[in-house]
Design a protein around this nucleic acid. Structure first.
Lengths: 97, 97
DNA sequence: AATTTATATGTTACTTATTACATATGTTAA
DNA sequence: TTAACATATGTAATAAGTAACATATAAATT
């Protein structure tokens, strides 16, 4: 696997706003306005971050009138986040944080 | 899970040097000098980056005389990297890179 | 077709992370 | 006990990423 691909992947995850969006989308799909309201982030920021998440396959998007509904990739990202939670649960209490 | 814990986790992975070290350690444990020679990185950089990897439970270390041998966490990080490779294989060709 | 609502994109000041230098510590052997 | 080897840590210039502004596009409603 290309080094740059990893960087894009982890660079995407290494951001508070995007992590908050991911955590929210773990529960349910939402549109941009909903996300920015729930997370109290401004709309342009949400759009920028969703664009990046989409570019990397973390989320997919579906049009619904003027809304755009974003869904977390349930095939790879959902199980991945679960596995990462497990790692952090076991190791990050002792070592990191 | 705490937001800061995620940041530490992904921040650790979002770095070329550390990713190269991880990729190397997926094959075998190595000491600091070996790592810096194989990857053509200066020793202080390798030590700094190993310190961070250790702090987050990505690697463990074992003393062997004056050497210190670093091993990748095979319980969580090895399978995690595999899962990430799979995601990138499926989605990042189309979307990211 | 003009207005409103929803979302996306371009750009830049600012914040954060990285790298590499100098140097310190720790271990072994002469 | 000092020289040599192995690794770790403090610090700062530089590089990279972020957030927020202004603005553009796109769909629906009047």
């Amino acid at each position: 696997m290309l080094k740059e691909t990893y960087r894009t992947f982890f660079g995407t995850l290494n951001n508070n706003s995007r992590l908050e969006i991911i955590q929210l989308l773990r529960k349910n799909p939402y549109n941009v306005t909903q996300i920015s309201k729930v997370l109290n982030m401004n709309q342009t920021s949400v759009s920028h971050n969703l664009a990046r998440l989409k570019r990397c396959g973390f989320v997919t998007v579906k049009n619904n009138g003027k809304e755009r509904i974003y869904t977390l990739n349930s095939k790879t990202i959902k199980p991945l986040m679960k596995l990462i939670d497990q790692h952090m649960d076991t190791y990050c209490k002792k070592y990191c944080c």
